[in-house]
Design a protein around this nucleic acid. Structure first.
Length: 652
RNA sequence: GCGCCCGUAGCUCAGUCGGAUAGAGCGGCUGGCUUCGAACCAGCAGGCCGGGGGUUCGAGUCCCUCCGGGCGCGCCA
């Protein structure tokens, strides 16, 4: 509602200012610091003062005088040194909310948005760094969808890379396992195969460090996987398939699902790279280097992605002198496919159906029996990737630009975020020896090769156990399986909120104490506000009082009377800003805004809840109004939690 | 050396496009459960917004510079 009125006002003032002063830039409002200054403020007089060479205050007075009455606005007044403060008509605003706001105008853009996230190497269990990626990506998807955008979720699976090869080599060379034995282990429900591989990966990494000559194992495994034949290739398939399923299961615990899983094995077999290479070569984006340090390689000149100052030696190698393609090269091919520009496509087959009925498809070398939905061909692509890869992402976009796909290059968005590291205390708790220098640092980096990290499932398990203690102590008589279900919802709320409360550009120094907190600025705090709101209506029902027909019983005059109370008005207003917040989050690419909003709204509600015993309210009109206000805030909080992927427990 | 990010209360972080008196959580201290559940609420203390210069009617926010910290800069992925 807030968002809609703001847009209307922007149009009104835009046309007025344009007519009167020749104003051409978009009209923007700000939200006044003081509630008594109104709901929106227009600072345009300050800018106009410059060109008109008149004091801003007199211009603001003129705007107030000359702007005719606006529907939904009670008053305009001049504030401060030249603001135009806009006071909403509380009565009509509340009436609109009460009557149910008509559905929003259709999405502002009609193409498909692709969001690629998670992208975990399928060779070991997921850790908290992967969790940040998946939660950020999934939440952004939810935000986009909540605002009417069409979105496809992709999760790229590098099932033929070095990390998988290392685990394959470990199975074969360190453990002497056959494909059958590995398959049996992967199928054995008594072993956590992803945890086993976590340790195994750390083991072979250590082995490589101590016996560098054994690095040849990696090369052999890689080559076998690429040929797709022999025991090594079979083990690679067994491992990557099993680990992929483990990852999907882990993410499902957080209500994170995918539409399609494009795999590196198909990118390889369907020769995506060969096609991209043709394009890059024909259009002169890359050229063959005959001398210098890159002799024998196909390179992209640095001028394409770095500044003018970049020289020949800064060129990026795309094809190595041995004829193999680098990671960036493959990524350019993949990015072209996402926009439907490659001229090649995958085949697909359904991989599995989630308990909620959603199906995830996986790329396939040959046509499947079932016709697949159309994947790819996006108009905008968000790649949720750690900010350490900024440089490479820039090169990918530069590749598209150099190929002449200017628009697609601009719509290739690196949705970058900083890493999740471990606080030194946390690393110590995990049993890792830190040297003096590491202990001094603010954080230590997670390392799969060292086996240093917090596994996603372990963290979720811890959260569930801690929440369960709380639930069991508060509700000892509820059935245990229900207690566990509630505890799980609280755990998910705590974890997702924790990953979202930080903006993307700060490093999270992970600490169990903070992550396991359920008090203060946390997911459970917001969940608790919803539970409290709901309990009012449960109590109402227990007393045999029906939920009132608010729209019939609260007329405009009643709303106006009640909303003279500034506190009520501010709460209603805050709750009506959900959509405006989502739009702001989309524009800024920042899911944290939505998390913050949910917390602040919950905070406002908790305060209100504490001050006003609603069921005991003697005045009938006021009681009706308070019930409606509570119901509206509850609905907005639930919606917002839904967008954050946070469930609302029945009780807690 | 070059590029990107960070520096705001004791700690962890918000701060929209440059706007009115810089916010929250945690921690500390004080107070509040006979009420719709205290996973809550209220109050107090705590700030040269890293330093310096500039632009502007106005700077935590933009520009320059310096300091401190992090991450990149491979024919690894």
């Amino acid at each position: 509602m807030f968002h809609r009125l703001e847009q209307t006002l922007a149009r009104v003032f835009s046309s007025h200012l344009q007519r009167r002063y020749g104003w051409s830039s978009p009209v923007v409002f700000e939200e006044p610091r003081q509630p008594e200054f109104g709901e929106l403020a227009l600072p345009a007089a300050f800018q106009l003062a410059r060109t008109l060479k008149r004091p801003p205050r007199t211009i603001a007075e003129e705007i107030v005088r000359e702007t005719g009455p606006i529907e939904g606005v009670a008053a305009l007044e001049v504030g401060g040194a030249g603001y135009v403060n806009i006071h909403f008509d509380r009565r009509s605003y509340a009436r609109a909310l009460l009557g149910g706001v008509p559905p929003d105008e259709p999405a502002v853009e009609q193409g498909k948005i692709i969001v690629e996230h998670t992208n975990i190497n399928p060779n070991k269990a997921a850790h908290i760094g992967h969790l940040r990626n998946a939660v950020l990506g999934d939440t952004f998807v939810r935000i986009l969808r909540a605002r009417g955008r069409r979105v496809e979720v992709q999760n790229y699976i590098d099932n033929t890379g070095v990390q998988v090869a290392d685990v394959v080599a470990a199975f074969e060379r360190l453990l002497g396992k056959t494909p059958e034995q590995v398959a049996a282990m992967a199928a054995d429900p008594t072993v956590r195969f992803d945890y086993f591989c976590w340790d195994l990966y750390a083991r072979i990494s250590a082995h490589y460090r101590e016996h560098p000559e054994t690095l040849a194992w990696r090369q052999h495994a890689l080559e076998a996987i690429e040929r797709g034949e022999g025991d090594s290739a079979r083990i690679a398939t067994i491992v990557s398939d099993a680990i992929l399923r483990a990852h999907l299961a882990t993410m499902w615990r957080l209500d994170i699902v995918y539409d399609v899983l494009p795999r590196e094995s198909e990118i390889l077999r369907l020769k995506f790279w060969a096609r991209a290479f043709e394009l890059l070569r024909e259009r002169g984006v890359i050229h063959y280097q005959t001398e210098g340090k890159n002799a024998g390689c196909w390179v992209m000149p640095a001028a394409a992605f770095a500044g003018e100052a970049a020289g020949e030696e800064d060129s990026k190698v795309i094809v190595r002198s041995n004829g193999t393609v680098t990671y960036v090269g493959k990524d350019i091919a993949y990015q072209l496919w996402k926009f439907g520009l490659l001229g090649r496509d995958f085949h697909y087959r359904p991989l599995m159906t989630y308990p909620n009925g959603h199906r995830v498809w996986v790329s396939s070398e040959t046509p499947g029996e079932e016709p697949a939905p159309e994947f790819g061909r996006g108009t905008r692509v968000y790649n949720v990737i750690d900010s350490r890869q900024s440089y490479l992402q820039d090169i990918v976009a530069a590749g598209l630009r150099a190929l002449g796909f200017q628009r697609e290059a601009e719509n290739s968005i690196h949705f970058a975020y900083e890493m999740v590291a471990l606080s030194p205390r946390c690393a110590a708790e995990l049993g890792f020896e830190l040297d003096a220098e590491e202990r001094r640092r603010a954080y230590v980096e997670v390392s799969g090769r060292k086996g240093l990290g917090v596994k996603a499932d372990e963290l979720i398990d811890k959260l569930v156990e801690k929440a369960l203690e709380e639930v069991a102590s508060r509700h000892p008589h509820e059935p245990p399986e229900q207690q566990r279900q509630i505890a799980t919802q609280i755990a998910v709320g705590a974890l997702r909120y924790f990953m979202l409360k930080y903006t993307r550009n700060v490093v999270i120094a992970f600490d169990f104490e903070e992550a396991l907190s359920f008090e203060g600025e946390t997911g459970p705090y917001v969940q608790y506000a919803v539970v409290r709101a709901r309990s009012i209506f449960r109590k109402l029902a227990e007393r045999g009082e029906p939920v009132p027909d608010y729209a019939a019983e609260l007329d405009g005059a009643a709303l106006e009377r009640q909303l003279r109370n500034e506190e009520f008005w501010q709460l209603l207003l805050a709750a009506s800003k959900a959509d405006a917040t989502l739009e702001r989050a989309i524009a800024a690419g920042e899911p944290a805004h939505v998390a913050k909003y949910a917390f602040q709204l919950a905070q406002a509600f908790n305060n209100f809840y504490h001050q006003h015993p609603i069921l005991a309210e003697p005045d009938r009109e006021r009681k009706l109004f308070l019930l409606w206000l509570t119901d509206y805030v509850r609905g907005q909080l639930e919606r917002t939690l839904g967008v954050l992927g946070i469930p609302c427990p029945e009780y807690m």
